[in-house]
């Protein structure tokens, strides 16, 4: 059973004033099929963890380890990580003009599985997945993320999660900016992926709202670049009632 292990991870971000430490010793182990919610106030480093795991060049790992089934993730390039089974649903998906969604999905799927998907079944699979996520079929011919609304971008991210079938998916604030209907559609997609592929999920969120639709097995409270408290789903309920004040003590608030 695949395991994603993060040990004592320290990460700095490049700034004009030089490297600035963001993550200060993160320890986390995720097994297949598990869903871990990472919650925390703005600026606590949640999204940095997501980007660093995917290998974004802006973030430098200064110490610590990340392994996927014992393989050194940090030694892998961005594309190698994806092919090893890591998937990052991005908070701000990037527009790629002139590259159609259909072409992009096929190219990525081919790269990840090492062979082109069978024409007969692939088209049907894509259409079915798009239908499930209420993505109009015309999107296949549109340029990746170009002119998509916030909700369309997030659904397009989850579409990829369903089609690429990663071992571990990191959802970086996938719920932010979604209305209730879109949140439900996106959550259904994540839950389908969980049921059909045994994917391990790292769900990064500021709000508890999405946890009504995607049930976490574990909840981690992220404060100042490390995990301040861990627990089961009941921890999320407490956060809902109390906010992050008791962790940060600076009046940081939280809304559900």
């Amino acid at each position: 059973m695949p395991t994603l292990e993060i040990r004592d991870l320290h990460v700095s971000v490049e700034t004009k004033e030089g490297p600035k430490p963001i993550l200060r010793g993160v320890d986390l182990t995720i097994a297949s099929g598990e869903t871990h919610a990472i919650m925390g106030p703005n600026g606590s480093g949640k999204s940095t963890l997501a980007s660093a795991l995917a290998g974004h060049p802006k973030y430098e790992v200064t110490s610590g380890t990340v392994t996927l089934d014992g393989e050194d993730v940090l030694a892998m390039s961005v594309d190698e990580r994806a092919r090893a089974g890591l998937f990052l649903a991005m908070q701000y998906p990037v527009e790629v003009p002139g590259v159609s969604v259909a072409n992009f999905l096929r190219t990525a799927k081919t790269a990840i599985s090492g062979e082109a998907p069978a024409l007969r079944t692939w088209g049907k699979e894509v259409r079915g997945a798009m239908e499930n996520l209420r993505i109009d079929s015309s999107f296949a011919e549109r340029s990746v993320n170009e002119g998509f609304s916030g909700g369309e971008k997030k659904r397009h991210e989850i579409l990829q999660m369903e089609l690429f079938k990663p071992h571990f998916a990191i959802l970086d604030e996938t719920d932010s900016g979604l209305d209730v209907d879109a949140l439900r559609v996106v959550s259904e997609g994540v839950n389908r992926a969980k049921e059909t592929t045994d994917v391990g999920v790292l769900l990064i969120t500021h709000y508890t709202r999405i946890l009504r639709y995607i049930k976490p097995d574990f909840v981690h409270v992220f404060v100042d670049g490390r995990i301040a408290e861990e627990g089961g789903p009941e921890l999320a309920e407490r956060l809902e009632a109390e906010g992050y004040d008791r962790y940060v003590g600076t009046g940081a608030t939280m809304s559900a």
């Binding site: 060049p57 961005v78 990037v94 790629v96």
Partner: peptide, 14 residues
């Protein structure tokens, strides 16, 4: 470079 990162994060070589 963000386009490059996005595509590579989907397994596509540089």
């Amino acid at each position: 470079d963000e386009q490059l990162f996005y595509l590579m994060a989907r397994g596509i070589p540089e």
